[in-house]
């Protein structure tokens, strides 16, 4: 990085810090002067205090227990979606009969937003881990499948031709050319799916749960503790942010040849 871009970076960070400072200050002033009631908008200090209460343990679960409750659902549903969605997408892109058979099913199910599955999942699987896992599965399989499908469909013809010229058979074409070529796009789908899984588990916990961050926020609402609600939202945001960050790090290691943002 040269001098000039360093200055630019510092300048941008400065700008960002100033604007965030202004927002925090405005938030503080609005609540401190009673312009907005604390029931509607908690003061920054109250949120900080609520975050401490949350991390000490809230409604029978420690912070870790809430985190584990949310994450275990995310991981089980997400992994199932990846294991089924990616191979199915690849297969549909590679084999016309599979595409003709499965394509319409995907077309029927895709437009139904994941939250709409929440009641049905409860009806079918109950409110515990299986039900929520199913919802997360439904929400994250779509990006996995669609991206894998498009990734394989759009492998540049020149790469396929080059491989055929070098003597690749059908299996080599799929496993040693098409799949590696599509990997950046597949990874992108997996990242979107992870975000979608996280948003969906929070939504499901808002509807019905006994632990998890969504449950914390909803309990805050029911008990008129807006500071807990805000602390819960921050916990959701931070966890989501960290998951995304970890994913990108792994992606950079696993796919070093791709253009990363």
């Amino acid at each position: 990085m040269n001098r000039r871009t360093t200055y630019l970076r510092v300048g941008q960070l400065g700008f960002g810090a100033v604007s965030l400072g202004v927002i925090l200050f405005a938030w503080w002033q609005v609540t401190a002067n009673g312009i907005v009631s604390e029931f509607l908008l908690p003061a920054p200090a109250a949120v900080f205090e609520a975050a401490q209460r949350l991390s000490a343990g809230y409604l029978g679960s420690s912070l870790t227990a809430h985190l584990v409750a949310s994450l275990s659902v995310v991981l089980s549903g997400y992994i199932a979606a990846v294991l089924i969605g990616v191979p199915l997408g690849i297969l549909m892109a590679w084999s016309r009969p599979v595409d003709i058979a499965m394509g319409p099913l995907v077309a029927i199910l895709r437009p139904i937003p994941p939250p709409a599955w929440i009641p049905l999942a409860i009806l079918w699987f109950g409110i515990d881990l299986p039900g929520k896992t199913f919802i997360v599965f439904v929400s994250s399989i779509t990006p996995c499948l669609i991206n894998a499908y498009v990734a394989i469909k759009e492998v540049p013809a020149n790469l396929i031709n080059a491989a055929r010229m070098l003597g690749a058979g059908n299996a080599s074409l799929l496993f040693r050319v098409a799949i590696p070529a599509g990997l950046p796009m597949i990874a992108n789908g997996l990242r979107i799916a992870l975000g979608s899984a996280w948003a969906t588990v929070v939504a499901a916990e808002l509807v019905v749960a006994t632990a998890g961050f969504g449950f914390v926020i909803m309990s805050g609402y029911r008990n008129i503790e807006s500071d807990i609600m805000a602390a819960g939202m921050i916990a959701v945001a931070v966890t989501g942010f960290i998951m995304n960050l970890l994913f990108r790090e792994v992606e950079k290691r696993v796919i070093p040849w791709a253009e990363h943002e």
Partner: peptide, 28 residues
């Protein structure tokens, strides 16, 4: 300047799934 003032804010808010606003939104 508008971009650099506002983008950090949106970058931060982007990490909250929209649906998580539902309870606050009910309150408001």
């Amino acid at each position: 300047p508008a971009r650099e003032m506002l983008n950090p804010l949106f970058e931060m808010l982007r990490n909250v799934p929209p649906i998580a606003w539902a309870p606050f939104s009910l309150l408001w």
